[in-house]
């Protein structure tokens, strides 16, 4: 299967999202660039506070009020959606073309409204189709996520957590979006429900050719779905790699350390932890943000590394690869 012939659905360049606080701007997403091809799943991994959820919010333009910087370009399906005004974005992009499943959204269903009415509503608003058509569509997606259609008549409390999560995913699928952003879709679920949900998402991926951005801290779960892995650290995307290589051959020292800290069930390995803590995003170090905790740091690390393109198609932000890879200046 060639990955190069598929169309680029999302092209993010130099995206910045800073929040205003009393202590100064928080650089939650700082100069992030990546491309995602249609039908592919990108897993954004990293530890809490690394900016992965902020990245999702920046793409969907679901922003809090205290924004100090929101710049860069997001080319979605050939259009620079950063140039859209809020009303146009709401009408043409959000939910219609980019749907999202936020964190813990299975608890966001209204407890006093039947599931069907809740799933139909966004279709009526965003797709402007008749209620009857919307109902048919909702029944279709319910089947895709593996829920019995008669559950549509139930109230949220009558469904288990795993089922509610699947109902939410059905809701995101219903408008047939080109891109779905899933923020920690399975972390609130039990192990078996989690595995079931991953099966569902895999089936959706095969049947509908949907493009996903999966945000997670769990690399094991990410490997169930991801074609590409992006590692974020302190607001920067430090590595972007094909999943095929990433688990065994991560390049950035942080990615390597992160992989070494993941416990495995089937393989016995020496687990490591990363001493120290991520830097504050209010006054981050001027150079590489991982330098302070990095065993391989050298003088150059006091400068922000350029993005280096490696032979296998990965990109990495680390001075160690300056010579082996091809550096493209931003």
């Amino acid at each position: 299967m060639s990955t190069r012939d598929k169309k680029i659905v999302l092209d993010v360049q130099n995206l910045k999202l800073y929040f205003r606080t009393q202590a100064g701007p928080v650089q939650a997403v700082d100069d992030v660039s990546f491309q995602l091809r249609a039908g592919h799943t990108l897993a954004v991994v990293g530890e809490s506070g690394c900016g992965k959820t902020s990245l999702a919010k920046a793409i969907l333009r679901l922003l809090p009020r205290n924004i100090s910087t929101y710049t860069g370009s997001i080319i979605f399906d050939g259009q620079d959606i950063m140039k859209y005004d809020d009303e146009k974005f709401r009408r043409e992009i959000r939910w219609h073309n980019i749907a999202s499943v936020p964190q813990a959204s299975m608890n966001s269903l209204n407890p006093v409204i039947r599931i069907e009415d809740q799933l139909v509503e966004p279709l009526l608003i965003h797709e402007r189709i008749s209620r009857q058509q919307a109902r048919t569509r909702v029944a279709e997606v319910f089947e895709i996520v593996g829920l019995p259609v008669d559950f549509l008549q139930r109230y949220p409390f009558e469904l288990s957590g795993g089922m509610r999560q699947r109902a939410i995913i059905a809701m995101a699928l219903a408008s047939n979006p080109k891109l779905i952003v899933l923020d920690e879709p399975s972390s609130a679920l039990d192990l078996l429900s989690q595995a079931n949900l991953m099966n569902v998402l895999k089936r959706v991926k095969q049947q509908t050719d949907a493009t996903f951005i999966l945000i997670t801290h769990d690399i094991g779960t990410a490997s169930e779905l991801a074609d590409e892995i992006a590692v974020m650290y302190a607001g920067k995307m430090v590595e972007y790699s094909s999943a095929q290589y990433f688990y065994t051959d991560a390049h950035h020292p942080y990615s390597q350390k992160l992989m070494a800290s993941v416990p495995t069930l089937r393989e016995d390995k020496e687990l490591e932890f990363i001493p120290g803590q991520p830097p504050s995003l209010i006054n981050p170090p001027t150079g590489c943000r991982f330098a302070e905790r990095c065993e391989k740091r050298f003088e150059k690390c006091s400068m922000q590394p350029d993005t280096t393109y490696l032979e296998n198609g990965s990109t990495v932000q680390c001075w160690l690869f300056e010579e082996t890879g091809e550096v493209k200046h931003a």
């Binding site: 991953m198 690399i219 094991g220 169930e224 999943a243 069930l265």
Partner: peptide, 9 residues
Amino acid sequence: TSDPDAENL
């Protein structure tokens, strides 16, 4: 339980 592995896909 998933271990990170490209085969999982």
